[in-house]
Nucleic acid binder design. Structure first.
Lengths: 199, 199
DNA sequence: TAAATGTTGTAGCGATTGCTACAACCTTAT
DNA sequence: ATAAGGTTGTAGCAATCGCTACAACATTTA
């Protein structure tokens, strides 16, 4: 026993951890085999080639992301400033950093044009935005734009201050202030004035 | 003639263009030599090693960035929403994309821990922030935070939507709206209420 | 039991990596 | 002219890369 498919799934799990730990460098087949407790020869038995291996691992990380986010933040709708505060606290935590770092790594590689990485990266981004949009207590018409803005602000700190994201604190606080000052339609509660131009 | 130092500078210029075109991949010595019109052997004569080569090229790109930014935007102070509008228009343009892409590439590599790349990346980020802070018509106390926020929002679109940054339009428009709604201290003019806690 | 199929180890190919040994050239200084 | 030193080409090393040929073993099927 320990058939091909079983082993494949086990390898994916182990490598997902490794990818989150070390990013997309350090991905030589022999090194990955060592991490997965097997041989490079076997990796290419379980997977068509390295590309499919990487895609499988990243896809699994992407699909498990939604679950961990929901577990972390629940389902209750939050005002954008509160959500950003919580997200920022998470981004600064050690537990969360690997995900953001891997995401940045992936985006940078995707920017080089690789269609496979572009697709996976977009899938992850869409997952984040979708998750946050559902959680935001703002009019439907603003949900996606606000979600993308909040995510971009946090990711942007990763680009601006590599390795020490905490230095982006003042910029995030500034955005929190702006979101709190938001005038007009952001009455407290769930009453949404349902702009029919959006879902 | 054509001494070592002259050739070195010429090589740096040629490779700066190449780096902006193709990012930090495609940096094999033989490939770089081809681009620079020389041989790998000579590259290692002009430079100590590949690391020093890359650092020299990136540093030159970083130091030339300020000049081109000032040339593009002038010196007149602008309200943050106007500046973001202009920056976003630039970010979407083909002429500007290489810089952003290279910056993202650099940040991703820096995030892997390489101290040299971290240093260069921080230098570039600081240059952007400094430049924008001087250009912003906001109280001194808010200058750097606002600049970092605007930059992060734009860079973040690069991470969220690799290869098609224009899809971040709605998030940027959202931030423009927020900046326009900014209440309180943003009286027109340069009168600053000089919070002593900040430079 | 025999044949077919699934799983794994050994060994290595051809290409690429950063880098170097060595010798030849060319210019300059004596 | 001769020596010294700066400049450049040829060739190749050792390591790593993704990947494969081939045979051995195990398990299932006939």
């Amino acid at each position: 026993m320990a058939k091909r498919q079983d082993k494949r799934a086990e390898v994916i799990d182990l490598l997902a951890v490794h990818f989150l730990d070390t990013g997309l460098s350090d991905t030589g087949l022999r090194r990955l085999a060592e991490v997965a407790g097997t041989s490079d020869r076997m990796l290419l038995y379980y997977f068509e080639n390295k590309e499919e291996l990487v895609a499988a691992v990243l896809t699994q990380i992407a699909s498990s992301l939604g679950a961990s986010l929901t577990e972390m933040f629940g389902h209750r709708p939050l005002p954008p400033s509160t959500l950003l505060e919580a997200l920022w606290a998470a981004a600064k935590s050690e537990a969360f950093k690997p995900h953001l770092r891997l995401w940045l790594d992936l985006a940078a590689n995707a920017n080089r044009g690789d269609p496979l990485l572009i697709s996976i990266s977009q899938q992850i981004s869409a997952g984040w935005i979708e998750w946050m949009a559902h959680l935001l207590a703002v009019p439907d018409a603003d949900k996606k734009a606000t979600a993308a803005l909040i995510l971009a602000a946090v990711d942007g700190q990763l680009v601006l201050f590599p390795g020490e994201i905490a230095r982006g604190e003042s910029a995030i606080l500034q955005l929190i202030r702006l979101l709190k000052q938001q005038v007009g339609h952001v009455d407290i509660g769930d009453r949404q004035h349902h702009d029919p131009a959006y879902s």
